[in-house]
């Protein structure tokens, strides 16, 4: 059982006009096995929340705390956060030319587990995870995210999540750019990892579409850099009907 606890989080970015506050006091607690949907209009700060937790250097934490099982996450380097059990599935996964998927996965898993996986079991483990995500084995010889379609990038993110076995995963707009079939495959992957590994999930999305496949336990409406309304799955239904208009001035 793990708990990610975010308290009073304020985050700024440096712009040409100076520091600009994006997150204005976020409070959120995610436990193992729970799925929290973070829904909100574009520009509300959802992705900033994701990247701040992962430790992207662009964002400055001005106040508040983030802890994983009581340990201060904000003091950790980016790789330490991953080793502690956090995972960010990115909306725009980055291309790394010349680095093969297989080399990348092996290097990452070795870093997270603290030892290189045994060759014999590792090959099978990767193959099984790829098959479950309907990925061609030849995929592992390609360079990381280079020339990947939108669907391939997202599958590759979920593949990493499956192999790295995080405690808490943040899925940032994982549904964007996916057609119906890809959305189903990716969602099934997320559900499988959640089931097998008792994963806690922060599911960031603009649309309710993905919630048909990944059932949230809690829905948080995000606007103006903080959570403005919370509820159960029924809140998503309301958002689907009414949109975010009523939060625009929040």
């Amino acid at each position: 059982m793990s708990t990610l606890e975010i308290k009073g989080l304020h985050v700024s970015v440096i712009t040409e006009e100076g520091a600009k506050e994006i997150l204005r006091g976020v409070d959120l607690t995610i436990n193992s096995g729970e799925t929290h949907a973070i829904m909100g209009p574009n520009g509300s700060g959802k992705s900033t929340l994701a990247y701040s937790i992962a430790g992207h250097p662009k964002y400055t934490i001005t106040s508040g705390s983030v802890t994983l099982d009581g340990v201060d996450v904000l003091e950790m380097t980016v790789d330490e956060r991953a080793k502690a059990g956090l995972f960010l599935a990115m909306q725009y996964p980055v291309e790394v030319p010349g680095v093969s998927v297989s080399n990348f996965l092996r290097t990452a898993v070795t870093a997270i587990r603290g030892e290189a996986p045994k060759v014999r079991t590792w090959v099978g483990e990767v193959k099984e995870a790829m098959t479950a995500l309907s990925m061609d084995p030849a995929f592992s010889e390609r360079n990381v995210n280079e020339g990947f379609s939108g669907g391939e990038k997202k599958r590759h993110e979920i593949l990493q999540m499956e192999l790295l076995k995080p405690k808490i995963a943040i899925l940032d707009e994982t549904d964007s750019g996916l057609d119906v079939d890809a959305l189903r495959i990716v969602s099934e992957g997320v559900n499988r990892v959640k089931e097998n590994q008792d994963l806690g999930i922060m599911l960031i999305t603009h649309y309710t579409r993905i919630l048909r496949y990944i059932k949230p336990d809690f829905v948080h409406v995000f606007a103006g850099g903080r959570i403005v309304e919370e509820g159960g799955p029924e809140l998503a239904t309301k958002l689907e009907e009414n949109g975010y208009a009523e939060y625009a001035t929040a």
Partner: peptide
């Protein structure tokens, strides 16, 4: 690129070498 690799647990020196 560095952030992406590090966010998967790869330490910065090793991530730089990979890139």
């Amino acid at each position: 690129q560095l952030f992406y690799l590090m966010s998967r647990g790869i330490p910065s020196e090793q991530a730089r070498r990979l890139v």
